[in-house]
Structure formats: C-alpha cells, structure tokens
Design a protein around this nucleic acid. Structure first.
Length: 245
DNA sequence: ACGTATGTTATCCT
DNA sequence: TAGGATAACATACG
C-alpha cells in the first residue's frame, strides 16, 4: 500500500465518488491521539496527498493518514480488523485500518512543501538537485528514501530507479557526474508514474527489473543486501550498475 | 507454515 | 550526547 503512487490511487478513487465538500455525519474507529469530535458535522474542503501522506483537509485543520507498512483502506466496505478511523458521509464512507492518524492544526500549506513530492505538479527537480549537492557524502541508496527530498519514494521505487539509471547503490552523491545526478532525480519521478500505471493494471511486480528479483533483465545475478544507514533491502546488479568512485 | 516486508518513530543502548 | 540498534505497529504474500 505505502509508496506515493498508491496514495494517488486512493485520491483518484475518492474523486470518482464525486463528493463535494462532504459533511462528516459520523466518526468511527479507535484513533485516540486527538478528539474525533473535532471532525463531527464539519465539511471536508479537499483531499490531498504529499508523498506517502494522505490528507483530509478541513477549514482550519487537516487529518493526516500514514499507512506505514501494513495500512489499508476500504471505500463503502468494511472488514473485521480493528477500525482506526472511519468517516461516514451522507451516501459514502471511508474506512482506514492499521495506519497512523494525526491532526495538523491550521492551514495544510504551512505543513508541507509540495515541491518535494515527486508526483506533484509542483515537483521541483532543481530544488532536489540543490539539496543533494549539499550532502556529497550521502549514498544514493539512502537519499532516494529521504522524504524531504523525494517525498513518495519508497524501497521499491528506490531499487528500480537505481537499476534504470545504472547507478550502484553505494555510490556517493559527490561522485555522480552531473548527467547521472540529473538522471537519478528525473527517474525518481518518471518511474513513480510507471509504478502508478502498472499498479492500476495489476502488473506492477511483473515489471520489476531489480526489486525482489533473482536476476536482472540481462540474466546477471541480482545481489540483495541491507545497505546504507537506512538498512533497507537493496537489490542491484553489479554488472549493470556502476559504482562511481 | 513461516519468513519477510512498499515505513516510520519512540525508546533504549553505547 | 549523538548515534545506532531495537521494538512496535498487526497484515499480506509466496
């Protein structure tokens, strides 16, 4: 569920309901880090997302849903596992499970820089390159997971972007050529949209070239190691992906 | 059946 | 004290 494109899919499914500023008639669930009565009888102004964050925006506060690793949602359906947050409108309902729910005070724009979201219209690749240049010692396998630079990128996107750009995960930012640095940043967005398309078609895993693979498309062995300070599983081909040093 | 994981953060160590 | 390791969340998949 968790990476950025999956949140876009949730947003699109809600759009298809054609709710216009729906009033919350009932609030359910065991989310208890804020008073759920805050939402009651208030109108939702918009549904937004920032990377892996799903945002339900009210007049002067926003409910933030983060699905973490195991989170899920159902629209106009429910299931047996404990409900974290349920919002009931006149005709529809949204149910969120196993997620982190937080309430952000004030205008949502004060909480987020939309330029960091690789899938947003506002995405700013120049700003991303600038941030990367300020961390020359960082490894590419770590920076791709940095939500302040590549909001929405997760471990699948990380591995696929590194394979597509033929960059070894342990390459330091300082050692990338300007062209490779640019390719890295551009592919973070580009692959995210392929992810979105394939996820909708239910063919995402079929298109993986490195993530979860035993061999790359050229039949070389794929190595699998926990790399970087993030210690996330990294799948890479030492023949196809160059270590810049 | 069991091991692993598309993620993040609080807390406990050193 | 900064940093790293660990646990926690509680589900789905192969």
């Amino acid at each position: 569920m968790p990476e950025g494109p999956s949140i876009i899919i949730l947003r699109e499914l809600i759009e298809e309901l054609h709710l216009s500023k729906p009033e919350v008639l009932e609030v359910a669930g065991n989310a208890k880090n804020f008073d759920k009565d805050r939402l009651l009888h208030k109108k939702i102004q918009s549904f937004k997302s920032w990377g892996k964050h799903f945002l339900i925006c009210f007049d002067d506060f926003t409910v933030r849903i983060h699905f973490m690793l195991f989170g899920s949602y159902l629209i106009n359906q429910s299931k047996k596992i404990p409900l974290k947050l349920g919002l009931i409108f006149k005709k529809d309902e949204l149910n969120f499970y196993t997620c982190k729910v937080d309430l952000l005070e004030g205008n949502v724009n004060q909480h987020y820089n939309w330029e960091n979201d690789v899938m947003a219209d506002e995405w700013n690749c120049i700003a991303a390159i600038k941030k990367l240049k300020n961390m020359p010692e960082a490894l590419v396998c770590d920076v791709l997971l940095d939500q302040q630079i590549f909001s929405g990128v997760g471990n699948i996107i990380k591995n696929e972007v590194l394979y597509r750009t033929r960059i070894h995960p342990l390459t330091k930012i300082a050692n990338l050529t300007p062209a490779k640095l640019k390719a890295l940043v551009n592919e973070a967005r580009n692959y995210s949209f392929d992810f979105l398309k394939w996820k909708k078609e239910n063919t995402l895993s079929k298109h993986w070239e490195a993530y979860n693979q035993k061999e790359c498309p050229l039949k070389h062995v794929i190595d699998k190691k926990e790399l970087g300070k993030t210690h996330r599983q990294t799948y890479y081909c030492t023949k196809c992906q160059k270590l810049y040093n």
